[in-house]
């Protein structure tokens, strides 16, 4: 079984603050994800899909089970090592964008490089390059609140790409966007996955959005109820 990019076994998560009687957020989830996959995670709210995403993204820790990243168990990592993985291996895209409001688009994109220790000139060069790639070159020095939702999400994607990640974790990235913009964002993810081979883990509750992925994992009540290739509904119509 060694050699898979991400591998979780019997992953369980119980929230301490949860009301008694509430079922665990994750109940023994076991699966693997390979490099270059584009995976959509679906399920109703409360199904555990976001918890799964946070655990995989090392933003949260599981209460039981094992999580190996590149064959290495992450449970023994210190908080500094976890920060290092989030900084170098992962890139996050959130539903609410999570940009820092008071600094410019380019400075937001450069932020992961601040923590990876890149020199200032290099940070500036790379952030402009990335903004150009997401089609926002003219907005490099704009403040996030001057940008539309779709533009902010593209800044967030550029930020996620700053340190050449192996995995993009996108939690409802189109949840706050209109259909047209959502499609643009999803086209961008698809192209990115195809061209650079970056692994993408996408959480969504919209079937249309999940259609862009190659593999679909459905969660319900903390269990995986479906795991297989995306059935292309458009083709079926």
């Amino acid at each position: 079984m060694a050699g898979r990019f991400i591998e979780v076994e019997h992953l369980g998560k119980v929230y301490e603050a949860a009301a008694p009687g509430t079922p665990a957020a994750l109940q023994g989830v076991s699966l693997g994800i390979d490099q270059g996959e584009f995976v959509a995670v679906m399920g109703p709210s409360g199904s555990g899909k976001s918890t799964f995403m946070n655990v995989v993204g090392l933003l949260d820790s599981p209460t039981s089970g094992a999580y190996r990243l590149n064959g290495k168990d992450v449970s023994g990592l210190t908080t500094d090592e976890l920060a290092h993985v989030r900084n170098r291996v992962f890139g996050f895209v959130f539903q609410g964008f999570n940009l820092l409001k008071r600094i410019s688009a380019a400075e937001n994109v450069a932020l992961p490089m601040v923590y990876s220790g890149a020199p200032g000139a290099e940070r500036r060069r790379r952030s402009l390059e990335l903004l150009a790639k997401v089609g926002l070159a003219p907005y490099a020095d704009a403040m996030p609140n001057r940008l539309s939702g779709g533009q902010q999400q593209r800044v967030a994607i550029a930020r996620a790409l700053a340190n050449h990640p192996q995995l993009i974790l996108a939690d409802e990235p189109t949840g706050n966007l209109d259909t047209q913009t959502s499609m643009e964002i999803m086209d961008f993810f698809t192209a990115l996955n195809r061209e650079t081979g970056v692994t993408i883990l996408l959480v969504t509750h919209e079937n249309d959005i999940a259609q862009y992925a190659g593999r679909l994992i459905r969660f319900k009540d903390g269990h995986v109820v479906h795991d297989g290739p995306v059935a292309h509904e458009k083709a079926a119509e």
């Binding site: 920060a83 290092h84 989030r86 996050f92 992961p112």
Partner: peptide
């Protein structure tokens, strides 16, 4: 706090 969360998500260590 949220800003701190964002910074940590993109790789800031506690120390940073």
């Amino acid at each position: 706090t949220r800003e701190i969360g964002i910074r940590m998500a993109i790789g800031a260590r506690q120390r940073d």
